[in-house]
Design a protein around this nucleic acid. Structure first.
Lengths: 262, 262
DNA sequence: ATTTTAGTTTCATTATTTGAGACTAAATGA
DNA sequence: TCATTTAGTCTCAAATAATGAAACTAAAAT
């Protein structure tokens, strides 16, 4: 039994999902030939997969322009996924509350295969483009939400996630080595919160805290974000008590919710 | 070649998607045996399908409780679907704008297989639980957004959609016959907007207008909703000019966007 | 201790998927 | 205009994967 890379799972269903990913990765409606270029399947095989997915509503086919894009059926399925995504629904009232208390942008995130998966976003000032955020993934090593979670994992989990990081330098402040990251995580663990000091985007700073359940297990994290133009570190850090209260309440409500793996 | 019911598409991928639907329909994490009860597949077949979907991340498996729910991979795919769902993204700035102008709840919807598919929701008062709404489906014959679209379809399309309606009586005001609905649609077409007079939920009323492109084709619809306790018909109808402006702008921007079918 | 239930595995059979190649239609170019 | 390229579609024998009756295991219920 040979280990298979996750992107090359055997089985017809796996291949179909691979095609779905290909189409999604474009981020814009694509023609069949464009999918063909990036996929590993021969033409007739890919053709049938694409047609099957379109028939099933997993891809939407624009007959006019003859292009494909991720389908509406996904929207419906994701609607349910979202509603059941326990941390998102458990956290919602608390995120709502925090949103009323602060004027900055709030994120709720979770770890997913070493990456940050955003579950919720609030922006009291100008609502809201949430779908554009929930479901989005981002880097773990250079975001507040990511580091907050990372710092509170067990050492083994932490190393496993660190091994998955790309350490791309987004800004001059990005931590680009595992060593630098580990040192920072130590600090975060001690002080109980993480900062994003313009490590991902210049001008964007945030404070973040992990959501822990009773046994100290990391369930997710919450952050408060602003720009260096609109706030100062002192002002932002004043929100720490509100943030602490929020993550504690979420952690309490999520007591018996089992985190579905990293 | 025999016509196949859409729920019984041959092919392994179709079967897998059927299982995904089964799981989603529960709306809560389910055990394998529960899926078995509602699915048409024999035990080992279903077992393999479920495991395959879980391996692929389309289902999330909670190892503790041994339950399955729609997976996180769906969230990521839906994120892209949403972003590309042209009407949603084209409409966003206009929906934002309307949201700043009125304090009521706003919906953006589209027709999907005879049902209303909600694409966006805004609520200026308390933002916003959007994922919980976008992707949701509802009835066409007894909602403002639904009737607004229905009224402006071609007669053939209209009949096709009417034939798909269940005409369940949700409230004493629900129109429960095709005849009553057709008469109402006539009025809506004449006056250019639809009302929901507590036809779906008691106490909930709304005004809705279709989004039409230059050639009069129905692309979607937008509604402004409130409760009978907070508003009156007179007050609500005062928002009609704002609503008209919104749908016109969306229709204008969506000029060359081709609606992906009913 | 026995029975029931839920989940898992096996394997010969069956059905689907596969993909090289051929074909068509439409666009491009000479 | 007619040749040529390109994008999309179809065919069918061969290769592969899915199937499901039956058997098995583990754990819970009696």
């Amino acid at each position: 039994m040979t280990a298979e890379s996750p992107s090359q799972k055997g089985g017809t269903v796996g291949k179909a999902m691979e095609v779905l990913d290909c189409v999604a990765r474009f981020g814009t409606p694509v023609r069949f030939s464009q999918i063909l270029e990036v996929s590993r399947f021969p033409k007739p095989t890919l053709y049938r997969l694409v047609r099957t997915l379109a028939d099933l509503g997993m891809l939407d086919h624009d007959a006019d322009k003859d292009t494909y894009m991720p389908g509406r059926r996904l929207l419906k399925l994701a609607h349910v996924a979202w509603a059941q995504f326990s941390l998102a629904s458990i956290a919602r009232p608390h995120i709502d509350r925090l949103g009323q208390q602060v004027s900055e942008t709030i994120h709720l995130a979770q770890l997913d295969q070493g990456q940050v998966l955003y579950l919720d976003k609030r922006n009291a000032r100008d609502p809201v483009e949430m779908y554009s955020q929930a479901g989005k993934v981002g880097p773990t090593y250079c975001t507040g939400v990511g580091k907050a979670m990372l710092a509170f994992l067990t050492p083994e989990e932490q190393e496993r996630v660190i091994a998955l990081q790309s350490f791309h330098r987004f800004t001059p402040h990005t931590l680009v080595t595992p060593e630098a990251l580990r040192a920072r995580l130590e600090t975060i663990r001690t002080q109980g919160y993480a900062l994003d000091e313009e490590e991902h985007e210049t001008g964007i700073i945030c404070i973040a805290m992990p959501v822990l359940n009773g046994s100290g297990r990391v369930l997710g994290s919450v952050s408060i974000t602003d720009t260096v133009l609109r706030t100062t570190w002192a002002a932002l850090k004043e929100k720490l008590p509100l943030l602490r209260e929020t993550v504690e309440r979420i952690g309490h409500d999520a007591q018996d919710w089992h985190y579905p793996g990293i």
